[in-house]
Amino acid sequence: MSEIRTVTGKAQGARRKAARPPLWLTVLSLTAFVLLIALGVWQIERRAWKLALIDRVEQRVHAPAQPIPSPAVWPAVSTANDEYRHVSVAGRFLHDRETLVQAVTEEGPGYWVLTPLQRNDGTQVLVNRGFVPSERRDASTRRDGNPDGQVAITGLLRMTEPKGGFLRNNVPQHNRWYSRDIAAIAAARGLENVAPFFIDADAGSQSGPGPIGGLTVVRFPNNHLIYALTWFALAFMLAGKLFVTFGGGLFRRKRFVHEPDGGSDAVARRTGSDAGTIVEQT
C-alpha cells in the first residue's frame, strides 16, 4: 500500500512540476503586472494634471485683457505660466513685413497672417491677425483690411512654435512657413527687439475685410481615464491568469471515484477488499 501511495504521489508531483511555468516566465509576468499598475496610476496622475491645466487656461482665456508682459520679464515668459493669457497691445502694423503661415481652420485651408506690431517703446510683437483663404494670399487683395496708424489689439498670448509643423520644416529662404517660429520669422524679416511670443488676435480686432480673427482653438485631449482603466483591466486579467496558474490548486475539492472491478487500473492499484475507492484531485 505504501509503495502505491509513493508512486501516486510522485506522479502527482510530476504533473504539478510539468504544469508549473519556468522561473523566467514567472518573473516576467510579475514584472508586467507591476508595470501595468504603475501605468494606470501614472494616467490617473496625468488626468489630474490635465484637469488643472484646463481649468487654468479657461480662467486665462475668459479673464479681462491685461497689457502684455514688459520687455524686462520676457525671458521669464513660459508656456506653463503665460500661454493663452488674454492680453492687449497697441502699436502700428508693419504690413510690408507680414508672414503667411499655412493653416487649416474651420474656414478651410489657407494662411495665418502674422504681422509685426511696432510699439512706441521700440519693441515689436508679432500679431497673428487671423486667417485668409488661399485666393487672398497676395497682400494686394487685402489692402482695404490693413489699418494704418495706431491700433489696439486684444487676443491670446501664444508661445513660439519652433522647428516647423508636423513632418514639415519651415523653409525661410523660399518663404514657406508651416509654424509660427518667432526667431526664424524675425530673422527672415529683419526684425529687432521682438517679443518671444505672439498674439492671436480676437475677432474684435478685425479691420473691415481683413484677416478673420478669433479662430484660436483651445482644446486639450483628456483621455487619461480611459487609458488608466485599460491598464488596470490588463493588470487584473494578468493577475487572474497568475492566480489560476499558481493558486488554483489550493481551492480544488476532493472527490471519491469508485474503481470498477476487473479494470486494468484497478488491478494495478488494488491491495485489499477496500481498495476500490480512491481519492483524486479535480
Rank of each mutant, 00 (worst) to 15 (best):
A139M: 12
L51K: 04
D138C: 00
Y227T: 09
S88H: 05
L117S: 06
E280W: 03
T271N: 12
V171G: 09
P196L: 09
T105Q: 04
K163R: 14
A14S: 06
L215V: 02
I278Y: 08
P75M: 06
L25K: 07
T216C: 03
F197W: 02
P71K: 08
N223H: 11
A72M: 09
R16S: 13
A201Q: 10
V244L: 11
K50F: 12
P162L: 10
A268M: 09
L100F: 07
A152Y: 01
L157A: 01
E192F: 14
L250H: 05
V244H: 09
Q43K: 02
I278E: 10
A239T: 03
D96R: 10
W112S: 01
W231T: 04
I54D: 13
T115S: 15
A187D: 14
T26R: 07
R255H: 02
G130M: 08
L23V: 15
V101T: 12
S205I: 03
G204A: 13
F251L: 10
P172N: 13
A72E: 15
T6Q: 06
A183D: 15
I4A: 11
T6N: 10
F93P: 03
V87M: 00
A235D: 15
M1S: 06
F232T: 08
G272H: 06
P22Y: 13
F93A: 07
L156T: 00
V127D: 11
D148Q: 07
H86I: 00
N128V: 04
G249S: 15
S205P: 12
T154K: 01
L36D: 14
V27F: 15
D138G: 00
A48N: 14
T160L: 06
H95A: 05
R253V: 01
V57P: 13
G204M: 02
A52L: 14
A65Y: 00
A152R: 05
Q118R: 10
T277S: 14
A139T: 07
T115G: 15
A275T: 12
S78K: 07
L35E: 08
D265A: 09
G13T: 05
G91D: 10
